[in-house]
């Protein structure tokens, strides 16, 4: 998981923005919803309450087409840092959708947390 300290350090050394210009409205979800693997994003959603998940879902859903268009200006195998973070936020929306669209609760019914399943290898490109 990217820590706020790590993002600050990156931004200080490269003058790189945390998110691409035009997506500053989503800064409130960093670092909370930023996970660097499918496994990390699964865990992030599982740790949030339903109100927080719903809030993230609603805000991200209306921005999703704009994010997809922005990301497609680059090759998926070479996303610049700000675009990568923006896209990883959108990938977390897939996790939020599990709670909002399927379970209508933060986690699968009758499932324990923490649980034992690990996604050792997720989809590529873009971890």
């Amino acid at each position: 998981m990217v820590t706020s300290a790590a993002i600050k350090r990156t931004s200080e050394t490269t003058d790189e923005p945390i998110l691409p210009a035009g997506f500053e409205d989503l800064l409130e979800f960093i670092p909370d919803w930023l996970g660097e693997s499918a496994d990390a994003r699964w865990d992030i959603r599982a740790r949030h309450g339903m109100a927080e998940i719903q809030y993230f879902y609603d805000k991200m859903l209306v921005r999703s087409e704009a994010i997809l268009s922005h990301v497609d200006q680059h090759s998926l195998t070479a996303l610049p840092g700000p675009t990568l973070r923006l896209y990883q936020l959108l990938l977390a929306l897939a996790q939020a959708a599990m709670a909002v669209e399927l379970h209508r609760m933060p986690r699968a019914p009758r499932s324990p947390y923490p649980h034992k399943i690990r996604i050792l290898r997720g989809p590529q490109p873009v971890a």
Binding site: A38, L68, A94, A97, L102, A108, I117, I119, G122
Partner: peptide, 24 residues
């Protein structure tokens, strides 16, 4: 494309939920 990769993330997320329901 970004949409295809997002679809895969959603696919993985759903598979993970199904597996969690099963193996738990």
């Amino acid at each position: 494309t970004a949409r295809e990769r997002l679809q895969q993330e959603l696919y993985v997320a759903r598979i993970a939920e199904i597996l969690l329901e099963d193996v738990t």
